[in-house]
Structures are given as C-alpha cells and as structure tokens.
Amino acid sequence: MEKTEWEKLIDSLIKQGILKTPKVIKAMKAVPRAKFLPPDTQQYGSVDTPLPIGFGQTISAPHSRSVKLD
C-alpha cells in the first residue's frame, strides 16, 4: 500500500534519529496532525513546520524546533 504523506514524515523523523522508541513511533503514526488543524491549513498537516490554529496561537511542528536552529 502507498504510504501516506504523514507516514512518510514519520519515516523521515526516524531516519534523522529524532524518533527512536517503538511506542512513540506507533503513537505519532496513529495521530496525523491534519485531524487537529483548521480546514484551511489541513493540506499542510504533514509538512514539518508550526502552523496557525487561530486565536494568535500555533500548532507545534512534528519535529522542527525552528528553521533557524536546524
């Protein structure tokens, strides 16, 4: 079966050594971020960056601390 964009992102975090523990990997795979995004940003759910969720707040990136620090 073709991997989803979310599964590809998780695979990349494993390759980078950020995700290591099997149960953490399983948990991250189980909850795609798009489910928690407002409709207008859902298409960016699997992009590793923070996104606006309204009310002046952001949803965390799956990994990236910030572009400047990486």
């Binding site: 149960k23 948990a27 909850v31 965390s60």
Partner: peptide, 16 residues
C-alpha cells in the same frame, strides 16, 4: 492544550 494534537499523541502511549 493548543489544538489538542500533542495530548492525543501522549494518550496513544499512556492509554493505548
């Protein structure tokens, strides 16, 4: 809580 997403990923581990 923000969007609730982080809490959901934690729930997957502590209450699978």
């Amino acid at each position: 809580a923000g969007s609730g997403w982080h809490a959901a990923t934690i729930a997957e581990i502590i209450a699978p």
